[in-house]
C-alpha cells in the first residue's frame, strides 16, 4: 500500500497528491511517469510524475478528475492509501545541450510541464513558459511556474485571466520577435501539441512532445500505447513518452485515444450516480 502524505485541491477538477514511494522518489526524473491502481479491482492508469522529493520519499502526482478511476483517487483523503504505485516508467526528458527552452503547457498538462521547466531552470537554462487554461478558475501552479521561468505567459480561452486566446499565439509572437530557442517542449492535449508543432515548424526549432496514450503495464508488454512516429510503430511506455513532435502522427493518436469512449462515459456516469447517492 502507498500512503497519501499530502493532498491539495488545485482547482475544482485538478488535485495534487504526494504519495509515499521512496524507491520511485529516489529514481524519478522529469518526464517520467508512474502507473497506479486505487483499489484492488481498479484499473491501471498512467500519470506523469510532477515531482520527486528524495528527503521525504514522496512522489508528487497531479491529476484531473475525468473518469471513474480518477474519481475514486480523488475520493481518498490524506493519510489513506492506494493499492499500487509503480515507476518511474518511460525515459526522462532530454536536457543535454539545451540552454534556452520554451515550455508550452496546456490545462492539466501544465502539471507535467512544471517539473520539466524546473529541471531546465536548475540546470541553468533560460526558461520561457507559455501556459494555457480554459478559464481563470482552472489556472494552476502559477506561483511555481513564476519561480522557475525567466518569462511566463498565461493565456485563457475566455480571457478571464492573463491573455485571451490559445498558447500558439504568444508562442508565435515569441518566435517572431527573434527568441532563439534550442527546443520547444509541448505538454498538454494532443490537439494542442499538434498545433504547437505547426506553429513552430516555419522557425525550424526542434519540438519535443509528451504523449500519454492508453496503456496497461507500462513496461512494453502490452503494446496498447503504440504510436506511429516517423512512420514506425513506437511504444510510448518504453520508447517515450517524449517524442520528436515533427514525427508523431497526432491524428492517429487522437483517434486511438477514443477507443473506449463509450465504456468511459458509462463508467463516469455510474461513478457520478454513486457519488450522488452517497451525498444524499
Amino acid at each position: 500500500m502507498y500512503k497519501i502524505i499530502k493532498k491539495r485541491v488545485l482547482n475544482p477538477t485538478v488535485t495534487m497528491m504526494d504519495i509515499y514511494a521512496p524507491l520511485i522518489a529516489n529514481k524519478g526524473r522529469a518526464g517520467q511517469f508512474i502507473i497506479l491502481r486505487v483499489d484492488d479491482d481498479g484499473e491501471r492508469i498512467p500519470l506523469t510524475i510532477a515531482g520527486c522529493d528524495k528527503s521525504t520519499g514522496t512522489v508528487k502526482i497531479i491529476f484531473q478528475v475525468v473518469g471513474a478511476t480518477t474519481m475514486a483517487l480523488n475520493a481518498k483523503a490524506e493519510g489513506e492509501s492506494i493499492c499500487d504505485f509503480v515507476g518511474p516508467l518511460g525515459c526522462p526528458t532530454k536536457t543535454d545541450g539545451i540552454k534556452r527552452v520554451c515550455i508550452v503547457g496546456g490545462g492539466v498538462g501544465c502539471a507535467i510541464a512544471l517539473p520539466v521547466a524546473q529541471e531546465f531552470a536548475s540546470l541553468g537554462a533560460e526558461v520561457h513558459s507559455v501556459v494555457g487554461f480554459r478559464n481563470k478558475d482552472l489556472v494552476i501552479l502559477e506561483e511555481e511556474f513564476n519561480a522557475c521561468s525567466d518569462k511566463l505567459i498565461i493565456v485563457t480561452d475566455d480571457g478571464s485571466y492573463g491573455r485571451q486566446g490559445v498558447v500558439t499565439a504568444p508562442l508565435k509572437e515569441l518566435l517572431e520577435s527573434g527568441e532563439q530557442y534550442d527546443e520547444v517542449i509541448a505538454i498538454g492535449p494532443v490537439i494542442m501539441m499538434k498545433f504547437v508543432v505547426e506553429t513552430v515548424k516555419p522557425f525550424g526549432v526542434p519540438v519535443t512532445v509528451s504523449m500519454n496514450p492508453i496503456m496497461i503495464d507500462g513496461t512494453g508488454m502490452c503494446g496498447g500505447c503504440r504510436l506511429t512516429v516517423g512512420g514506425k510503430t513506437k511504444f510510448a511506455c518504453v520508447d517515450g513518452p517524449d517524442f520528436n513532435g515533427y514525427e508523431v502522427d497526432f491524428d492517429e493518436a487522437m483517434e486511438r485515444s477514443t477507443m473506449y469512449a463509450d465504456f468511459e462515459r458509462r463508467e463516469r456516469e455510474e461513478g457520478c450516480n454513486l457519488f450522488k447517492k452517497e451525498m444524499k
Binding site: I216, D217, C222, T228, E255, T258
Partner: peptide
C-alpha cells in the same frame, strides 16, 4: 516482452490488439 506487429497497413486502427494486451485486459485486469 514486447509484442510484435506485422507492419501491414491498418495496425493502428481501433480494435487491433496485440494478444498480450487482449489477454492482459481479460486475465490480469479481469
Amino acid at each position: 516482452g514486447l509484442p510484435n506487429f506485422m507492419g501491414i497497413p491498418g495496425e493502428s486502427l481501433k480494435g487491433v490488439y496485440s494478444a498480450n494486451e487482449f489477454l492482459t485486459r481479460s486475465n490480469l485486469m479481469k
